[in-house]
Design a binder for these strands. Sequence first.
DNA 1: GCCGTTTTCGGCCCGACTGTTTTCAGTCG
Length: 574
Amino acid sequence: MAKTLPRNAEIADQLDLLADISEILGEDSFRVIAYRRAATRIRETPGPVAELALSGHAKDLPGIGKTIEQKVVEIVNDGEMHALAKRRQSVPAGVVDFLRLPGIGPKTAARIWTELGVTTLDGLQEAAASGRLRDLSGLGARSEEKVLKALEAGAGRKAPAEDRGLLGAALPAVKAVVEELRAHPAAIAVSEAGSVRRRRETVRDLDFIATSADPPALIASFCEAPWVAEVVARGDTKATVLGHQGLRFDLRVVEPECFGNVLQHFTGSKGHNVALREEAQRRGLSISEYGVTTVGTGEVVTHADEDALYEYLGYQPIPPELREDSGELEAARERRIPPLVEPGDLRGEMHAHSTWSTDAKATIEEMVLTAKARGLSYLCLTDHSHYLRDGRLEAQWREIDDVNARSGRGFKVLRGIEVNIRADGSLDVDDDVLAELDWVIASLHTAFDRSPTERILGAMDSPHVDCIGHLSGRRILKRPGAEVDVERVVEHAVATGTALEINSQPDRLDMRDTHARLAGEAGVLIPVVTDAHSTAALSYAELGIGLARRAWLTKEQILNTRTWAQVAKLRKRA
DNA sequence: GCCGTTTTCGGCCCGACTGTTTTCAGTCG
């Protein structure tokens, strides 16, 4: 039997651990950076990197060379990179955990271990409590205090992803704050920044950049807003506050002439900025949040406008969602950044539920009214198949007909369904019933670990299945989702003419960005859907559009930017 | 360890903050 290949996440974790250990051992810092870069690259690669490494193509990925490719092959063969296996012998496992504590980096971690002989978090806690930490030069009572406080809060013992929240939870708050700041008389320009602006699926700190005629007044209004639970830091140009749900908001007020530079800097990503600066450096330019310096002359140029900054550097303006160091700089140099799909491009909803699904909250009519108000012209009602047995499907159709009769021209409800792909791969609705429907979504809802890829491929073979719902079944921050071979699925979607949805539920966002990009490049038709179980949830479309933009998708690649008549012609049964 | 519009060798982003120290190394984003 074939060996199961290590997942990208596992390879990346090993590289990150190797980087941590190498850093503690004081090895060449540029090699450490190379390990970390490779780890990030591998984590963001849509297909299995192990497979690429075996065929000698992993080194085609930027940041991966012969040596790291070989290390990936070692994982396949022996379960662990040899360099990692060797170094683990020399550094106690607990010392690596020190790095997760604030203020403790590789140098300090190494000295705590070698000079104090402390090798566990418990040992560190004791050393800090008994005042032994201050024996190290450069560390004092303040450092001990900080370490103790962090350890009490559980730092170092949990995974780093756990302090992130869902974009869907943060985005409404971010928009409200931007609007509030803009309405202030002292405000000139206000923008969100950071990972929210890039529409990353999870976020931590929420960043805002503003220009103002009276910075202290704007800062004051920000800190004294009713939604602020605690002011963490407050200066004349910068403040950090906590909201009541624990979200952290960061506002920087800057001079109007460098608004573009600061916004670009604080939008990130870090990888994008590093790559941008490296390219600039080769041309004798130095970029910072304060402007672009020509190294030879010392001349500094600032930009009030972010697009103008990119143009000055020789790039087509790059939408925030693409700034992940995943090919956007090269594309922008060659002016190949595509016009990305926008929220207003959507014409219909293709995955939504009504009270016919007992887990949903709104009637068909209520869903229709909200969809209409959002500017849509059709809605595929795709209630769960298991709630539509024993004549209930026909009854649902009668209600659909009634609603259609009442809502008149300009809007249409289509007969759809979301069928389950059972553990054995079969669909839980008969073909003769599916044949009568306008839109059929097949989804995994159970047994995620039982041959998910084969079950999905099988569902796509059905002439009645128009679309696969939430491909992996993941719940962000809750469960990882099925191990689906996305490359095979995408290939088969093209071959069978099956669509693959982008599900906009805040904790699904499934397919994820890198997979959606792969599907789009292959020519799969991709509906952006909300899977709404309430009228309010129809607004999640914005999250799905953010995901689609992160996947470099244009209006043409998104199925429901078309009218229903146009969509119907693209169905596999058409 | 990776990489190339000066380079297959010799580079590798930038600035602020922190805690400690007295000029800075380490950490952070």
